[in-house]
Design a protein around this nucleic acid. Structure first.
Lengths: 208, 208
DNA sequence: GGCAGACTGGATTACGCGTTCCAGTCTGCA
DNA sequence: TGCAGACTGGAACGCGTAATCCAGTCTGCC
């Protein structure tokens, strides 16, 4: 359940909605590349081919646009995450491969599309921070669901705590992405994910 | 080995050096609270009680000041880290307690003094990014040293990879801090650190 | 087919903030 | 005790950028 129906189309023409969408997507790309504060309204204006009055027709001000971007990124990332079946170690390994190669394809630039926003907005935009928190909760949820069915299927020991493992896995992912972004090398990301997979394996039921 | 001798005192009076130090420390605090881009030169000026010409006497421009802050934070954090003996599980648990209660005392504001800088600077200031990378390498090193001696002391299995574990632990810490900052709750941080400690324990030599 | 309101364009404004300038005072050293 | 250069103060400048304004055009609906 998203915070709202997919971006309240309160009296927006189909065309208007498309324009709005284009602005958000463009802004999301630019912000991912250059960060919130180094992406100017004018940058977005130019890249999305809209005039400033158009932009302010759809968004009250820059923070409002940024919040729309936050929701957009959360939807995109969590949506992509749901493609993976994390109810087995094999599934986790596949996911690990995907994440690492994705990061490598970006040359470790930008970090996590959501996580990097967290560092930039948490202390300056309370509203954005809460939206991010909701996004992460959803993300955590998808991992948790995988681990819980892993346990229900008897693949994970009963004593294991899938909820805590899910949260830790998300944290490891975020930290790995951050360090990889700083070092411009996927090694930290790999080490972090491998560690979590090792931990899950060590708590798997196979030996019981 | 830091990038430079502790901030080249090229022809600075003792008093001048103190002033410079005060500026950096003040800037570090403000940047930690509000982020790089929302901390203005004027904020620093006021809080540190210096005039703008003083500030520009010591630093070429804002990026130069920011870089000085990065080095300052890296020295502070890594220095503090070295107090802990991570050559035993007990040491790790003590460290875990310290980190969590520290974060709690800040009400989860600000995240990691170094890590949060990474997200803000990696894509905009190449130079700062590299300085951060060096800082993290030093930090990683202190954890690695602990794990290596843990292994040498026979507390960690020979098959374990202390270097990779150290990197993963640092990543888990960073991710935990980031998520805790966003959620304003220490749970993610605790889950991340506990997971790494569990992993290390599962690879300890006690059962061998 | 007309009109209300969604939508677009571009010029203009207002101001925050980094940076510079100049005119001084203090301080270590010969 | 003089003087070079480290150090300080505060006013002023100029640019980048968010935001506004007004003058339009398009579009769905009765």
């Amino acid at each position: 359940m998203p915070t709202q129906p997919p971006a309240a189309p309160r009296g927006l023409t189909r065309k208007g909605q498309a324009t709005r969408e284009r602005i958000v997507a463009t802004a999301a790309d630019l912000i991912f590349e250059k960060g919130v504060d180094h992406t100017t309204i004018d940058d977005v204006r130019t890249a999305a081919n809209v005039s400033s009055s158009q932009l302010y027709h759809y968004f009250d001000d820059k923070p409002a646009l940024v919040r729309a971007v936050v929701e957009h990124q959360a939807d995109t990332i969590v949506g992509g995450q749901e493609q993976f079946d994390l109810s087995s170690l094999r599934g986790f390994r596949k996911w690990r491969e995907f994440v690492v190669s994705y990061e490598r394809s970006l040359n470790c630039r930008g970090g996590c599309p959501i996580g990097s926003l967290g560092g930039q907005l948490s202390e300056t935009d309370q509203d954005a921070r809460e939206t991010l928190a909701v996004g992460f909760k959803r993300w955590e949820q998808t991992i948790r669901t995988g681990l819980r069915s892993m346990q229900e299927l008897g693949r994970l020991r009963r004593q294991a705590d899938p909820d805590k493992l899910a949260l830790a896995t998300l944290a490891a992912l975020q930290g790995g992405l951050l360090l990889s972004q700083i070092e411009r090398n996927t090694r930290p990301l790999e080490a972090a994910l491998d560690a979590m997979i090792d931990l899950i394996e060590s708590q798997s039921a196979k030996r019981a």
